[in-house]
Design a protein around this nucleic acid. Structure first.
Lengths: 196, 196, 196, 196
DNA sequence: GATGAATGAGCCTTCATTCAT
DNA sequence: AATGAATGAAGGCTCATTCAT
């Protein structure tokens, strides 16, 4: 109807809602179109096909997250504080954008393997934010410098990602995210402390 | 082919291969049948439908894992040793059964949300093995007793699961799983140590 | 319904009817399926896609025509008699199988150019029956030996094909096919006579 | 682009190019618009719809041909010379305007049957030029007066049309059109000679 | 039990056409 | 008049499931 509004983000936001609710493979392009308030065919003016819509969604949203995290971390000086903030912010954003969280967590995994030619570089960039924090901590003596950055960043991400996922999936008895953030950060900070 | 062989595990093993390679939604029932060396229709003699095949696969395999882990942990006395062994064994099994690992990790997430009426109880049982180790450690003073068992078990599982996933997904430069097992176990054991 | 009847010729015959009536591009696969008394999907068990159905139809039917003509001409000795018989039989067959005639005449032209990778070899084989008659006539002095076989065969085929087409297309006032066959044959036989 | 140029012939010429290359049913209105250097919607200011564009194309071009032929034949006196010239000019024009030739030959056949309500009157007018030549030849004793004008004109047109088509379709080894024109004309003139 | 040909609902995608600008 | 973004009906094709053998 509205001819001028920018359709691309509008479609992506609709897709997030729909994919979060039903999953990518159970969602119809028509569902996304309906949610976006546009005609089915309009989606194909902005995306090559259904796969491309999912991939574009990833690229766009992970890029945004990347920026958000980079900016947020600027205010913190020590690696410990940065790690704390990363975890806190991750939980906060996942809480605020549960639909996006579901799509990123479930579909990104699913799709990065099966949609041909898609390599989720942005996701790796995102992981590297944690990697950079670890490196920094190792350099200034906050963290054990013998730890592998590559595997440790995955361990940390895996932890908070799984926690976020289960928090989102559980309907009742949701645990307290803020406190959990503190606990997890504390475990990793203690766990990564240099050996005396 | 083999007259008397039980077809059910045969189909499940074929499904693991096929789903691991292409993903559940990109796999055809006919693909599974072909991989199992049987006719398409035969699958429906053993499983209600495609969803049921996936769910049965989960149930069967997670039950097996459950038994394997429970038995393996009997030999260890301290919670620290048990946690060490759990992580070591998890990586070992994922390495030995990469196809199964992929299906469990990727499809379990995908499906537990979108296949209606499926609640992966066995998976929670599995998670609770970690929970039990933590509780034991808290009771005998090995671990900080103020930690939430529920979230910490997820943190640990998330870590090793993410590491396993990335190890499986990476084609080259695969990191050393044994060493990584030690590192991760070490981080968590240090990180969960009681506050003095 | 009937599980055993051979579906391929059944589908081809249905396709001839449907394509003759509506044209290939205006026919739906569902139309052909309905006409064949089968389900839509069944067509794809026997043909790769809609294009393949058309091409298979051509191959099959032109091969059959080829056989019919070759056999029929055996009974005739002179080139003139063979040409006469060819024209007579062509009109007769087109009259008997108007649906097939329409599809061959209209769609073969249309499609041989636009369906990629299709080269109507069978059609050229068919044309060469006329070419062989001309050659034979040139060798035994019935026809002018300076005539180009390649172009003359096209001239003859073009004539009878156009006549058949217009006869099929005209609803009323259809001209007499038998007499026309005689006239056309006579024109070409006279027209190709050797120069004294 | 050019402000004042009449868009209608511009669109028709673009359509000829596009339809010749891809065929009517495989051409998109957008393709024609692009080839004409205008916007998609503009076509609908000049033509009711895609079918109408094709039909208008036929009407316009066949009318032009009609005029060209009528004028060209004025210079010739005998029916034989006129027939000679008709065939020569037909081949010449088809050679000069291959795109138009393809559209007329292939699409006219295809469409005259399937585009509802279209009766290619102009095409019949064109055929009647040949009919008139035959009649004239019969009246002045050049041709056999017992021949049916209606079928003979179709025979002649079919011949040269098929020859033109195959000449256009063949990529290499194109036969010599001028010589073929002479041969065909000669066959028909000899073939239609009055019986003594 | 086993088969695999047949089914037909379902969905992605195309593209002729419209219409607000 | 001209534009081209938007529309949405339509249809080719897939594939989970059935069932006659």
């Amino acid at each position: 109807m509205a001819r001028n509004s920018d359709k691309k983000p509008q479609i992506i936001d609709a897709a997030i809602k729909v994919f979060a609710e039903k999953g990518f493979y159970n969602s119809k392009v028509a569902d996304v179109a309906k949610a976006a308030g546009i005609a089915d065919g309009t989606i194909y003016l902005y995306f090559k096909n259904k796969d491309d819509l999912l991939i574009s969604l990833f690229e766009t949203k992970v890029s945004e997250l990347l920026e958000t995290f980079k900016n947020a971390l600027l205010a913190f000086k020590t690696a410990k504080d940065k790690l704390n903030e990363f975890i806190r912010l991750y939980f906060q954003l996942m809480e605020e954008q549960q639909d996006l969280a579901e799509v990123l967590q479930v579909e990104l995994r699913q799709s990065s393997k099966f949609i041909k030619e898609y390599h989720p570089q942005k996701f790796f960039d995102f992981l590297n934010i944690i990697g950079d924090i670890i490196k920094e901590g190792q350099q200034n003596g906050e963290f054990d410098s013998t730890l592998s950055v590559n595997t440790t960043k995955l361990a940390i991400f895996g932890s908070i990602d799984e926690l976020a996922r289960q928090w989102i999936l559980s309907f009742e008895h949701k645990f307290d995210l803020k406190q959990t953030a503190n606990n997890v950060a504390s475990i990793f900070i203690k766990g990564m402390a240099p050996v005396i």
